[in-house]
């Protein structure tokens, strides 16, 4: 939805689908909750700093309270000890919400194939976007953000998309 306001008189009314209007609003008002645990969190700091500047894409209001956020960025290794905390944070976020898994460890455990490391956060919470890399460059994270925004703009939000998801910690 691109509108050149300069050519339109001020009283103009626009007709659009409600879906489109909401998607357009959501796209540029993502509030990320950064769940940074390890090296990837340092690269997130780079993404937030002036050179890469995540605020260019309307997602710089980093909230550390899950209740005020709608985009969970899991940046770093999640261990079995950390897992119940991550799940609790995810559960505390209200709908609509999205999850970006940043880095090899969050996606699959990375090269930590051992007794303490969760083999990917998608064993406990549903994930919308995976960003590879160890750690991913800030551009990769921005790319994930942009593709999420594109998705919000072009598709109707589907709150039931993870309805059938069942994580390892969901039994208890």
């Amino acid at each position: 939805m691109e509108i050149n306001t300069q050519t339109l008189p001020l009283e103009t009314a626009i007709t659009t689908r409600l879906d489109d209007a909401i998607g357009w609003a959501r796209e540029s008002s993502l509030w990320p909750m950064i769940f940074g645990t390890a090296c990837c969190a340092i690269e997130f700091m780079s993404a937030a700093a002036s050179k890469y500047d995540i605020s260019r894409f309307g997602a710089e209001v980093v909230r550390f309270s899950p209740r005020q956020a709608d985009l969970l960025i899991v940046a770093g290794t999640i261990t079995y000890k950390q897992a119940p905390i991550l799940k609790q944070i995810y559960d505390q976020m209200s709908e609509p919400k999205w999850v970006i898994s940043m880095g090899a460890c969050a996606c699959s455990g990375g090269f930590y194939d051992n007794y303490s490391t969760m083999q990917g956060i998608d064993e406990i919470i549903p994930v919308d976007l995976y960003v590879g890399g160890c750690p991913p460059r800030p551009e990769a994270l921005l790319d994930a953000l942009l593709s999420l925004q594109k998705d919000l703009r072009t598709h109707t939000y589907n709150p039931d998309r993870h309805k059938d998801f069942k994580g390892l910690l969901d039994d208890v």
Partner: peptide
């Protein structure tokens, strides 16, 4: 211990040079 990712156990099944990337991620700063 929330970031205990088993570095020392992992070292026991990697060769000496393979451990170098693991050491990167000790103090990643």
């Amino acid at each position: 211990g929330y970031l205990h990712r088993g570095f020392e156990k992992s070292c026991e099944n990697h060769s000496y040079n393979q451990i170098v990337p693991y050491t990167d991620r000790l103090n990643y700063c």
